[in-house]
């Protein structure tokens, strides 16, 4: 469970071009569910996701992660929740690596190296034995029916294959929360439906999924649990779809 409390993100604070991308957001995101952030371009979805994913720090407000504390090498005053905005960089990275898996709009795969290597990439610096995460990567590729592409370089793949590689990569470190930013923006409707199917499967495996999207295939999908609507950095509506 993720709890956001009065979260605000301002760019260029104190300058004439100051801009508040996320404005005083308070929200609870349920575990093991699919939550979709919907809103027009510039409404602050990406900014919000990067704060939740420990990629950027909020200007003010707090973020609590519940149920992930056990996976971490440290604890905050015995509580089960971790308040991440006050953590030093090193711990943030640790949480990001162990808790979150990211799927980017552009997939952000590294060119020139193989599909398998791309999938394993987030595991390299964790210090886990190569054999272990390699086996995991291979089984992920099998799971997404792209095992035959394992040694292929990524620039030769089709859009749908690229997307599945990106998903496999997001899952390599066994994260409990998947964050996807506009995952279907570059996909046709068939591939977009396929993506939602995979997301449904991940939820079935007990993962929490957080998606930012203005694609109706995503936010109208029967699979999603909660739809959060944003406008100008603020939440205008949040409803359960169950």
């Amino acid at each position: 469970m993720i709890e956001l409390s009065n979260l605000t993100k301002s760019f260029n604070s104190g300058q004439p071009n100051q801009f508040t991308a996320v404005d005083n957001v308070t929200l609870a995101i349920n575990p093991q569910q699919i939550t979709v952030l919907k809103g027009p371009s510039g409404s602050g979805k990406t900014s919000l996701l990067s704060m939740i994913g420990c990629m950027a720090r909020p200007t003010s407000g707090r973020i609590f992660l519940r149920g992930v504390a056990a996976a971490l090498p440290f604890r905050q005053d015995g509580a089960d929740a971790v308040e991440i905005t006050s953590l030093p960089e090193r711990f943030l990275n640790e949480i990001r690596r162990s808790t979150f898996g990211f799927i980017f709009q552009q997939f952000n795969l590294v060119k020139g190296i193989s599909v398998l290597e791309n999938v394993m990439l987030p595991a390299y610096p964790t210090g886990e034995g190569r054999a272990e995460f390699r086996a995991r990567a291979v089984s992920l590729l099998e799971q997404f029916s792209i095992a035959r592409l394992a040694s292929q370089r990524v620039e030769l793949l089709s859009g749908g294959e690229l997307q599945r590689v990106a998903i496999a990569r997001a899952l390599i470190n066994n994260p409990s929360i998947i964050i996807a930013d506009e995952p279907t923006a570059h996909l046709d409707s068939k591939l977009s439906h396929e993506f939602m199917e995979i997301v449904g499967r991940l939820k079935g495996e007990g993962k929490s999924v957080l998606i930012a999207s203005h694609d109706p295939i995503v936010f109208d999908s029967p699979l999603i649990d909660t739809l959060v609507e944003m406008r100008d950095g603020a939440i205008v509506a949040s409803r359960s779809c169950r």
Partner: peptide
């Protein structure tokens, strides 16, 4: 380098 950082490299 940006990609590596975004997927959890320090």
């Amino acid at each position: 380098i940006g990609i590596l950082k975004s997927i959890g490299w320090e």
